[in-house]
Design a protein around this nucleic acid. Structure first.
Lengths: 171, 171
DNA sequence: TCCTATAGTTCTAAAATTGAACTGTCAATT
DNA sequence: AATTGACAGTTCAATTTTAGAACTATAGGA
């Protein structure tokens, strides 16, 4: 599988990773959620090379995650703003933050706290089932092919593992 | 910022990305959640080079996300199983899947559906506030330094942006 | 004895990333 | 009028990573 093919895979993980699945892109997006909007801002916050930053920003604009908005004429300058599609990445960011808070903190504790304006409290993000509201656990979820399923890496995987399981069960 | 430094940043996003933030690692983890456990399974499902696969699996074991468990003697063979730390990545995976389902599907629809065993329904994952249970939106959250805060990329970012905002407000 | 399955390791070529310097526009300063 | 500084990039050589393919090793079975 090559990287250009990723976005065509019949797998939402693969497609998403094709767009945001590299380290600099994720860090750039972190900065976006921390309200950074300008080239120099990203560059100095991250220490990313200008070359790569320019490239990544272009890709994020091309994929509709950021919008390039002029903020002054002469010289023309632009800011990079999250679109709705970009804002929708928030749960991914928060899930990443929360895992880091849980498993990667040192003795000093978590570096950043999050306050929910609505309820005024410091919170953790919790992922729940849209239907019953219960917190989701990997073991309580099964997958099945959806309408867009077709022989893909993911589907082949499921079939192979099902087969292996039934062999193991029969033996 | 170099990659080895990422895990020392005072930012849970950076630390997490230091461990799981590359494309192959994320795809390997997808496979783990689809019940793949063996070297050949990962390799044939992903088309990753054996070289890189070996390296990534080693890193995932080293960071405590996978456990290398023997499943037969002579020749000694091992399976790679998610630890609890690894299972805790589930919300990240589901958030990624859900974003892909929302923004990257083609006309065929989503490739994979998820059923919650507890309630028996096909669901979407929703990220909510641990305190009030309301769905989280980026605009309804503010950040503040936690006990582990120190001058880091993320903190510098917040300060710089706050300053920029107050300048803009004053002008 | 040869073939297959499994889990890697080794090697070279190709691609991506780094680091540093350079370009261009305009405003403000000297 | 020339110089400096801020901003947003672009260019290029050197280094690092990744891809692709072949090779190693152990053991069971034909």
């Amino acid at each position: 599988m090559k990287w250009d093919e990723l976005e065509e895979e019949a797998c939402s993980v693969a497609r998403t990773i094709g767009v945001i699945g590299d380290r600099w892109t994720l860090l750039i997006l972190r900065e976006c959620f921390l309200r950074t909007r300008r080239f120099e801002g990203f560059q100095s916050a991250l220490g990313i090379t200008r070359h790569l930053l320019a490239e990544r920003l272009k890709k994020l604009v091309r994929t509709g995650i950021l919008r390039r908005v002029p903020y002054q004429e002469s010289p023309k300058r632009h800011e990079y703003i999250l679109t709705q599609k970009g804002l929708d990445l928030y749960p991914i960011m928060m899930a990443i933050v929360h895992w880091g808070d849980t498993h990667m903190v040192d003795e000093r504790g978590r570096p950043l706290l999050h306050e929910h304006k609505k309820c005024g409290k410091i919170f953790n993000p919790v992922m729940v089932c849209s239907e019953c509201g219960e917190p989701l656990m990997a073991k309580e979820v099964t997958t099945r092919p959806g309408p867009g399923a077709r022989p893909s890496a993911a589907k082949r995987t499921i079939e192979r593992n099902a087969k292996a399981a039934s062999r193991a069960g029969a033996a």
